[in-house]
Nucleic acid binder design. Structure first.
Length: 150
DNA sequence: GCCAACGTTGGC
DNA sequence: GCCAACGTTGGC
């Protein structure tokens, strides 16, 4: 089993939204590196849910991959913000996965805190200029983070 | 194929 | 709101 971290802006879609909806398609990813990670996900993989672009950027809970990568429907929807005229249905450019709510941490683990953990020194999240919205998390990294979660 | 311009992300 | 970092676009 693999571990991942996925960013979401809480104003758009928060851990509470996922908790309420139970499961959600993770679509709209329009970055090739992030897309490739989506395609590497397997059912059952665990995902750290991270809130970005907000007052306190933080890891806030855990989700689980419920459905492996499939063509992101929003790329073919002209009404969607994520519409991609260059993507052909016979050769979809973008992928989505479906995730399912697992749990919400009682207290968020702020980026500021995560940055202090020596185990996370190599995690893309804490690196300068990091913009990747989907990234792999190593076993040791996962343990270090979840050990702090309540 | 290079690279400047531009747009986006995301922390602060 | 600002700005650094980075990806993408498009002219040449």
């Amino acid at each position: 089993m693999s571990y991942w971290l996925m960013k979401s802006e809480p104003d758009v879609f928060s851990i509470d939204d996922l908790k309420r909806k139970k499961r959600e398609a993770w679509d709209g990813v329009r970055n090739y590196q992030a897309r490739n990670y989506l395609r590497s996900m397997a059912v059952g993989d665990e995902v750290l849910f991270y809130h970005s672009s907000c007052a306190v950027p933080a890891a806030v809970g855990i989700a689980r991959v419920r459905k492996a990568a499939f063509p992101d429907p929003t790329q073919f929807d002209p009404g969607s913000d994520y519409f991609d005229a260059g993507s052909k249905p016979e050769d979809p450019r973008w992928s989505a996965v479906e995730v399912e709510f697992q749990r919400k941490f009682k207290k968020p683990l702020p980026l500021e805190l995560l940055k202090t953990l020596p185990e996370l020194a190599e995690l893309a999240l804490v690196k300068r200029g990091n913009r990747l919205s989907v990234m792999p998390v190593g076993e040791t990294e996962w343990q270090a983070i979840t050990a702090l979660a309540t």
